[in-house]
């Protein structure tokens, strides 16, 4: 990233699904639009485009974020994982397998965001990070058990207009085992 004050556009390098990608982007380009419109990674979906639905969820340096609320230029030099980057060759990620096994989708539009969010959720709980429903008396240290209530709370940033929530919770419970 050029450290001088650039007027309207900048050339940035993003590490996307393990590969460095260099792009010259208008500063107004969000990470979501950079992925979809400039890198043809259309797995990540645009839902509300205002950070309210979670369809654009991707992993930025391993942490889940809303791609629609980040300017791509501000992600320069960082590592992005999209739903396309979760597979190991032709082998699906365990969370993807669980979504298929539990029929955790209907129309599928929110699913890439749900899956990226769930992948991060498993890491967060394994690291012992609390949620709003984690009992406050539970002291720091050790993984947080993923009860259905914990999964529902931790997935609250991903809206499913079809209402596939029961099977999404079941899929994440299965992936957590």
């Amino acid at each position: 990233m050029d450290q001088t004050l650039s007027e309207r556009a900048s050339t940035v390098t993003l590490r996307v699904n393990g590969t460095d990608r260099s792009l010259t982007l208008d500063h107004r380009t969000t990470l979501l639009d950079a992925l979809r419109d400039h890198l043809d990674l259309t797995g990540t979906k645009k839902g509300c485009d205002h950070g309210q639905c979670g369809a654009c969820t991707v992993l930025l340096d391993g942490r889940r974020v809303n791609g629609c609320l980040l300017f791509a230029v501000a992600c320069a030099g960082r590592s992005v994982t999209t739903v396309e980057g979760l597979t190991d060759g032709e082998v699906l990620h365990p969370v993807q397998e669980a979504f298929v096994a539990r029929d955790a989708l209907q129309c599928g539009y929110c699913t890439p965001g749900q899956i990226c969010s769930a992948v991060a959720l498993l890491d967060e709980a394994a690291r012992g990070e609390p949620s709003h429903v984690t009992p406050p008396e539970r002291l720091p240290g050790g993984p947080v058990p993923l009860t259905p209530d914990e999964i529902r709370e931790r997935m609250s940033g991903n809206i499913c207009r079809c209402g596939a929530y029961p099977n999404i919770v079941a899929a994440i419970e299965e992936a957590a085992r």
Partner: peptide, 12 residues
Amino acid sequence: LLAGASPQLRNA
């Protein structure tokens, strides 16, 4: 903090 927003938003 945990009562506000969503995990994605809190990460940013």
